[in-house]
Design a binder for these strands. Structure first.
Length: 897
RNA sequence: GGGCGGGUAGCUCAGCGGGAGAGCAUCGGCCUUACAAGCCGGGGGUCACAGGUUCAAACCCUGUUCCGCCUACCA
């Protein structure tokens, strides 16, 4: 891009269309995203939360990755060795469902293909349609090191997964066993506890009579049990009561006849039974309920599995076999009613578990699965956060993290699907020995038999995600990446996967790397619609980032997300917000046009004046002072993950200080013919603009790069230019005070003009009376500036002796009075009304302040500077009040005459 | 049942001990040669309610109430 500083190069409005692609391509081609390994520099590293390979960019991804990109761009500009490792997740269940669905639409199932062929089909799908989200992340501007992109199923990561599994098994931290797990009848697989969502549902509690077996009946005919799932009675193997419950004490040990199936089941005593609930007697279905399973273990009861993988009743349910679970429920109730065994039916709310992928109601089911022992891994992970080796931001999540880590249960990691990391375990068909190994074993090490069968289950996708921070850096090899960039600096993710992912990475990172996987974890909020509801396709309230990026530009979307990313609060997003920030991007664009127009130059960089502070105008010293402060604020905010603070500070500064005031103040100097003044103004105008662009760049990379390239001087790329630093020598309190006062005078004149209904273009005369030498000097030196900003004919300074003009609108400031003489224009009654209003307000303030100052406690206990402030305040009020009263008298005199 | 967060301008939210703020919306006036996707100006709030601590409370404490979310094996 040539450095032609010509406004002709910039159209009137920002058209982001080709700009975004052009710069992204150039950044990539020049390898600017590639990790840096310069010795002697600090490092900054992140791994991306890998999106599902089936995924499409949604607004949550857009937020998550915008925040990451802001940080990494900031750190890269600030001189760090940066790496941002991207990649995707193989998403076992989700991906398998996608591919199966395609097959189903062709009337085939995965079983028609068989395991190997099916997996091949998934890979084919992945190559052709998967990873679309990667392209979308590029569209978002993400500066990931794409040369290091990983996939959880790629060769290296698969090797890491195998290594982790084998080591954990050898250490006794992975085991296999028969337990109750959550079974999804739709996905045909086990799920981990946290993969089950609980949905509050209106259900019923059915009270069923279980008759005592005939020969054991004595005083009692039956026991009534209460259940929300009557169909599971078909798998009952006992009824349990509390051992101390007097109602049932004499029944323990007797037999019941299980209705409908007429099977004998015993009454057992178990302390887990809550006598207060229901009837105090519980039906025990060990194969389909966790509690019942525990009771059965203690009481030595058998388990009867009554469901198949679809949650359809199997042959154990005899006459009910082949029925779906809900169909079976209806039939069971009808049949019980017929036999007079249904005592009553109550409405009852309960939380049913559903699969987090497909929302199907899960079925607790006894089966043989692989588990990770959680407690030994959780303990160091818990401690690392307590010791602040990993800092959670916002810190309020620590409590939740602690809670989860201390109540954590073993993690079921086996899944009965095909797409995923197949568990590296083999069973000897001859002696039953289980062999876990990195390589496929040739023969059983115990009996030597060569007939071995590999475990058909695959691992939970989160198992491979848990090692992402080091597997992506090359583990188990000792790579330079691993050495340079682990532990990663920050993980940015959404709080809803704190348990699924963050906690498990903590466990695995500490266990295998001996150090935490990240120094900071920044947990951002969820994006909701404007009513605070979760966005979902079914509700139709989704904001699609791709659509709005196309409509408003990527920069506008990014800036909006950053500006709304306040810690600890959900983001309610509406499209209008994005539109607002598009206007802002356009404002920057137009400011650039102005700046370039006034540089009127195709020359090289502007030289910095020898001693800027010595001859600059107050407006110039003021804007440089503000720039320096803002730079400090932005840096601090980014360092503390206050993205919204940084974005809003920049917005406010650029628009409402630089554009609204500084550029307006600079116009006369820029367009005038005093060379010195012009040079100074040009230098300041350009310097502040240049610094602003760089401060903005992490937020809005495209427009800033485009504009920066138009600025004069030799230019590389803004994304690798230094991030501005606070310059203390630019701080200038005196200049800030002057400009603050200019603003006050200007605003008050504009206000009066507007309220008087005077056309803004009318070249009126304004007179000003100073009540102090300081005020006089101020007016004298700044009258040109005031003139420029208000657009008046002249600002005349009055001497104290002069009479106040009659029939003039009057503005009373602290030690300045301003008159707009407009005979006939001024409504004296209206003026009096306004003055009285202001008088009342002042009186109220004075009374309030006086009360404070009369309070001995206040005088003795409040800090000295606060007391002084109150004295100053009342002083100021009184001076102003005097003038108001005096002016009122003048007006009243006019009215009387 | 337990935990967390929140009720501040019409809307979305900052502020979290010392004179109530922003953006958007709204109303009025301006095509002022960077920008009408703009400029200038205005109106609008017992900071959920009730107590308490303090010289001083939107801000700290207690209680009440309403709204979110997370968590939980009472069948």
């Amino acid at each position: 891009m040539p450095n032609e500083a010509s406004i002709n190069a910039l159209p009137k409005a920002y058209d982001f269309g080709d700009v975004e692609h052009r710069w992204y391509r150039e950044w990539t081609e020049k390898g600017l995203f590639t990790a840096r390994f310069d010795p002697g520099r600090p490092y900054f590293s992140m791994v991306i939360p890998p999106p599902n390979v089936t995924g499409v960019l949604h607004i949550g991804h857009a937020l998550n990755n915008t925040l990451q990109d802001i940080l990494v761009r900031y750190k890269r500009m600030d001189g760090y060795n940066t790496i941002w490792v991207p990649g995707t997740d193989h998403a076992g269940i989700a991906t398998q469902i996608v591919v199966e669905r395609r097959m189903n639409s062709e009337g085939r199932s995965r079983h028609d293909f068989g395991r190997e062929k099916f997996i091949q089909k998934v890979w084919e799908w992945k190559e052709s349609s998967g990873g679309r989200i990667i392209e979308q992340l590029k569209g978002l501007g993400c500066s990931c090191d794409w040369s290091r992109e990983r996939f959880t199923m790629d060769e290296g990561l698969s090797r890491a997964v195998k290594e982790v599994f084998v080591r954990l098994y050898e250490e006794g931290l992975i085991y296999r066993g028969n337990y109750i797990i959550n079974w999804c009848p739709r996905c045909h697989t086990a799920l981990a506890d946290i993969e089950v969502e609980h949905k509050q549902t209106e259900g019923q509690l059915w009270y069923i009579r279980y008759p005592l077996a005939e020969e054991t009946r004595q005083d009692t005919e039956f026991i009534t049990v209460a259940t929300t799932r009557p169909e599971t009675m078909l798998g009952d193997t006992a009824v349990a009561v509390h051992p101390e419950d007097p109602r049932y004490k004499n029944l323990v040990g007797r037999d019941l006849m299980l209705p409908l199936l007429n099977r004998r089941i015993p009454v057992v005593a178990d302390a887990a039974v809550e006598p207060e609930f229901g009837t105090g007697a519980v039906k025990v279905t060990p194969a389909h309920d966790l509690n019942d399973f525990e009771i059965a273990k203690r009481q030595g009861l058998q388990s009867i599995n009554i469901f198949d993988e679809n949650a359809t009743l199997n042959e154990s349910a005899s006459q009910y076999a082949g029925l779906d679970r809900y169909e079976a429920r209806k039939r069971v109730i009808i049949d019980l009613k017929k036999q007079g065994l249904l005592e009553k039916e109550e409405a009852y709310d309960l939380a049913v578990g559903v699969c987090y992928r497909c929302k199907t109601v899960v079925e607790p089911r006894l089966s043989k699965q692989w588990f990770v022992k959680a407690a030994p891994l959780a303990e160091p992970a818990l401690k690392a956060v307590k010791d602040k080796r990993t800092i959670l931001v916002p810190a309020s999540w620590e409590r939740t993290y602690d809670e989860w880590m201390t109540t954590i249960r073993d993690w079921c990691i086996s899944r009965q699907i095909w797409w995923g990391h197949r568990i590296p375990a083999w069973t000897c068909l001859s002696c039953g020995e289980v062999i876990v190994s990195r390589e496929e074993p040739k023969a059983c090490p115990k009996c030597g038999n060569t007939a071995l069968e590999q475990e058909s289950d695959v691992l939970d996708t989160w198992f491979s995600s848990a090692i992402w921070p080091f597997s992506t850096l090359g583990w188990p090899d000792k790579t330079p990446e691993l050495k340079t960039f682990y532990p990663t600096s920050v993980l940015i993710t959404s709080f809803d996967i704190l348990f699924f992912w963050v906690a498990r990475m903590m466990m695995m990172g500490l266990h295998f790397m001996g150090d935490v996987p990240f120094r900071h974890v920044y947990l951002h909020a969820l994006i909701r619609d404007i009513e605070g509801k979760k966005m979902s396709k079914s509700k139709g309230n989704v904001i699609d980032p791709l659509t709005i990026m196309e409509k408003y530009g990527t920069d506008a979307v990014r800036f909006t997300l950053a500006a709304f990313a306040a810690q600890g609060r959900d983001i309610k997003l509406a499209e209008e917000r994005i539109e607002g920030y598009r206007h802002f991007v356009n404002k920057i664009w137009n400011a650039a046009r102005f700046v370039l127009l006034n540089l009127k130059t195709s020359q090289g960089a502007l030289a910095e004046p020898a001693e800027p502070e010595s001859f600059h105008d107050p407006s110039e010293r003021w804007i440089l002072s503000r720039l320096s402060q803002v730079t400090g604020t932005v840096r601090k905010a980014l360092d503390e993950f206050d993205f919204d603070v940084a974005a809003k500070e920049l917005y406010q500064f650029f628009w409402h200080e630089y554009c609204d005031w500084y550029l307006e103040l600079a116009k006369p100097a820029l367009t005038g013919d005093e060379t010195d003044r012009q040079d100074a103004a040009r230098w300041v105008t350009l310097t502040v603009f240049d610094h602003s662009l760089r401060l903005f760049h992490p937020f809005i990379p495209f427009v800033t790069e485009e504009l920066w390239q138009h600025l004069p001087g030799q230019r590389d790329h803004i994304m690798v230019s230094p991030f501005p630093k606070q310059i203390d020598s630019w701080t200038d309190v005196a200049a800030e005070d002057i400009i603050k006062q200019v603003m006050e005078v200007v605003s008050s004149i504009r206000n009066a003009r507007s309220e008087l209904g005077i056309h803004p273009g009318a070249k009126i005369i304004v007179m000003a009376l100073a009540h102090s030498d300081k005020a006089y000097d101020f007016l004298n030196s700044q009258k040109k500036a005031i003139n420029t900003l208000v657009g008046i004919k002249t600002l005349d300074l009055m001497s104290k002796e002069e009479l106040r003009p009659e029939g003039a609108a009057t503005i009373i400031l602290e030690d300045i009075e301003i008159f707009i003489p407009l005979e006939g224009f001024v409504d004296i009654d209206e003026e009096l009304r306004k003055l009285t209003k202001e008088e009342d307000k002042l009186n109220k303030e004075i009374i309030k302040t006086e009360a404070k100052l009369k309070n001995e406690h206040f005088l003795s206990r409040a800090p000295q500077e606060i007391v002084q402030k109150e004295f100053d305040k009342i002083n100021k009020f009184q001076i102003k009040l005097e003038k108001i009263v005096s002016h009122k008298e003048t007006l009243q005199a006019i009215l009387r005459s």
